[in-house]
Design a binder for these strands. Structure first.
Lengths: 203, 203
DNA sequence: GATAAAAACCCCCTTTAGGGGGGTGTTTGC
DNA sequence: GCAAACACCCCCCTAAAGGGGGTTTTTATC
């Protein structure tokens, strides 16, 4: 029997999940945490095979928590379960060690299939995410860490001069990055840049 | 017995809700819809007393659907059930006729309390939203329809001249609105303006 | 060891946004 | 009836962004 832990702050959802998993007969729920902190405290006791992990936790990013958990217990499989269907989020989760990715409007049977697959050491993406990841590359934007940092500072409303001062670079360099970001994202100005950054969760 | 309909595309959540409501003994689930379109088709047959309505539906805004449902069946109570905890969203839902507002990380008993309250003709806000709505006014930003329209066009990346042409106003007027928006939202430039607009769902 | 990509840097010039003022008339709610 | 909010318009000036063209160094990948 597969031991599953659930980390998600939506209490109604976790209750539904618990019922679903218990009834399925393929797994048992070792524990439920409603925050990243609660997860960190309990995960050592639960020793689950699979963690159903939300990305949007109240006290931190599931993306970071995923990396953390995989570092501590490399054998434990992470199955992301979120509302986000943005390429950047999925890719970051997978880069941080997640074995699978489900979106919350997936059917119940996909959840069970996902748990079984990742427990068996496979990679599992729900249908919609699978399609997303297979799209032509040019539609899925991927920024370098430096570009992401710059984009973040731009969305904060800092000017080129302020950014330059903050990260010890020449203002001209910042300008260069900004031009590149506009080109890369196909944005005509800062407003669109910020919009895309937030909508596609590029930061 | 209160008759409840559920409109939400998160299938796992709706299953959890169904169980929760059935077990409670205070209400029965008349039907479940996973989209606005499905809701429109079935609501006439279900004739529920209370509709649990999500804001983020795949095929349209729950805010609009709320208004639509209240116009067609004024006696039917709408109880919003969403992830959004932004003032603007809550206020728009209430303005459009919703009798209550729950956020999805609320406890299960708040859902039942909410159903009972709105069925009895009362207004129900879950704890977190209640606090939000009672904050000092200056923290809860509210824009006029015209300001919202302008803000939307700004986030689309249009320049003052383009906006002016589009809505048949003088570029100087647009400039005035923009200055006012910066002042009203406390934003230092367009980047922050766009960020706030999207984060607080002002558009 | 070649190739490519990221990262850092620079100049010129034009357009747009932002900061500071000023003002008018018209709804709308109390 | 009157204030408040809304919608509309104009000036001047500076700061910042955007469009065009470049260079070099490091770092990873094949």
């Amino acid at each position: 029997m597969i031991k599953v832990a659930i980390v998600d702050d939506h209490k109604i959802l976790t209750e539904g999940l618990q019922g679903l998993i218990a009834e399925s007969g393929i797994a048992t729920v070792a524990g439920v945490a409603h925050s990243a902190a609660a997860c960190r405290l309990s995960i050592g006791f639960w020793k689950p095979d699979v963690v159903l992990l939300d990305v949007g936790l109240p006290d931190g990013s599931g993306i970071d928590l995923c990396k953390e958990l995989k570092t501590q217990v490399p054998g434990m499989k992470i199955l992301a379960l979120t509302t986000h269907n943005e390429y950047t989020v999925v890719r970051q989760m997978l880069d941080n060690g997640a074995s699978g990715y489900l979106i919350k409007n997936a059917m119940a049977d996909e959840v069970l299939a996902g748990i079984q697959a990742v427990a068996a050491g496979e990679t599992f993406l729900c249908h919609e995410i699978d399609l997303l990841m297979k799209r032509p590359q040019e539609k899925n934007i991927w920024l370098s860490p430096r570009e992401r940092e710059l984009l973040r500072l731009v969305t904060e409303g800092l000017t080129n001069a302020e950014i330059a001062e903050k990260i010890f670079l020449s203002p001209e360099t910042i300008k260069g990055y900004r031009k590149n970001l506009l080109l890369k994202l196909g944005a005509r100005n800062t407003a669109v840049l910020v919009k895309m950054a937030l909508e596609q969760k590029l930061i």
